[in-house]
């Protein structure tokens, strides 16, 4: 035991003795690995949770067999299955686009985590324009989706990709606008700053309209029912990922849930005070609040029917954007008066 501690100490000493030019990249790499591990573990839990939760909503049990009790190992088994599946690249696809699209979809979900504060000190980088960065990173995913839809050389995929582009572009606007009210009150774009500004009252109470707009547009960006038009099974077979299978498909899946997690984390940070909370350590509050959003989004997903593409655009442009602007105006007025 003592020998182990000694080795560890020696390792640390050696590490900190390194020149900064090497130390910083290594530290960065470690942080990336930590975030990646966090995402993968959470996605495994999320998929299991979604299956169980939707099962209970539908009077079923969900997975029960692999890993008792309650099929905890089901996602693991599915992952292994997907990993060992044959990698099929259909004839006639645009090879490059087809191959890298899943990675492009997954990356933005990873990027977002760079600025999310897990606790007071646990944060990869406390960027001062974090909210803008989040919005920018989040909308990158559409590129990947469009690449997959175009590259698949399949009409259904193309239709799905077109829908995705229309959807994410029109919902990015209200989503960012809805956050502006928060920024105005907090006076900061940094997520740590926003958390700090909520030490007395959460922004969900100060910005209820902004919160609802953010929730709706986030669900749209996440392609969750009622906005799951891009892969609307009964209409477009599987939308943009029709031609994908095995590992590549798994990456889409991973990306979807990682995005869900990221969006929930952002929502928890911006509207529910992030890691701050009494008694429990910050990380626990953070996880609890994030999962609250995850469950809320799942619950809505499994209740609502799907909206149609033109109606979706209508809601986005004719309702959400004006409402978000009204929200900003009201916030500004109140700030002026108070």
């Amino acid at each position: 035991m003592a020998a182990l501690a000694d080795t560890w100490q020696a390792l640390l000493d050696w590490y900190f003795a390194l020149p900064t030019a090497i130390l910083v990249p290594i530290a960065g790499l470690l942080k990336v690995l930590a975030v990646f591990g966090w995402i993968v573990i959470n996605v495994l839990i999320l998929i299991w949770l979604e299956r169980k939760f939707s099962g209970r909503l539908q009077s079923r049990l969900g997975p029960m067999r692999v890993g008792r009790p309650h099929g905890w190992a089901q996602t693991l088994a599915d992952t292994i299955k997907l990993l060992v599946k044959e990698d099929i690249i259909p004839r006639g696809v645009d090879r490059w686009l087809y191959v890298i699209a899943p990675a492009v979809v997954f990356t933005p979900a990873l990027l977002v985590w760079a600025v999310v504060p897990f606790t007071k000190n646990w944060i990869v980088s406390d960027l001062n324009v974090a909210l803008i960065y989040v919005a920018a990173a989040g909308s990158l995913a559409v590129l990947g989706i469009f690449m997959s839809g175009w590259g698949s050389n399949n009409k259904w995929s193309l239709l799905g990709a077109m829908r995705a582009a229309a959807q994410i572009i029109s919902y990015e606007v209200p989503s960012v606008l809805s956050l502006m009210g928060v920024v105005m009150i907090a006076g900061s774009l940094s997520l740590q700053g926003i958390v700090a500004a909520q030490h007395r009252v959460w922004f969900i109470f100060l910005q209820p309209l902004g919160f609802i707009i953010y929730l709706i547009s986030t669900m749209a960006e996440l392609n969750r029912t009622p906005f799951d038009l891009t892969e609307a099974e009964s209409e477009l077979v599987a939308g943009f990922n029709t031609e994908y299978s095995g590992l590549r498909w798994a990456f889409f899946f991973l990306g979807e849930y990682a995005n869900l997690l990221a969006a929930s984390a952002i929502a928890a940070t911006v509207f529910l005070g992030g890691w701050s909370g009494p008694f429990l350590p910050g990380i626990v509050w953070f996880v609890l609040k994030t999962y609250f959003f995850v469950i809320l989004i799942m619950w809505i997903k499994w209740t609502m029917p799907r909206i149609r593409i033109d109606q979706m655009m209508e809601v986005g442009w004719k309702f959400l954007i004006p409402a978000a602007l009204v929200n900003i105006a009201i916030t500004g007025l109140v700030l002026l008066v108070v």
Binding site: R60, E233, T303, M304, P305
Partner: peptide, 16 residues
């Protein structure tokens, strides 16, 4: 019909 519309939950209720 619900399933066609993406409301899969109704499908399971009806079958129940």
């Amino acid at each position: 019909f619900g399933g066609d519309m993406g409301a899969l939950t109704v499908f399971l209720y009806c079958f129940r």
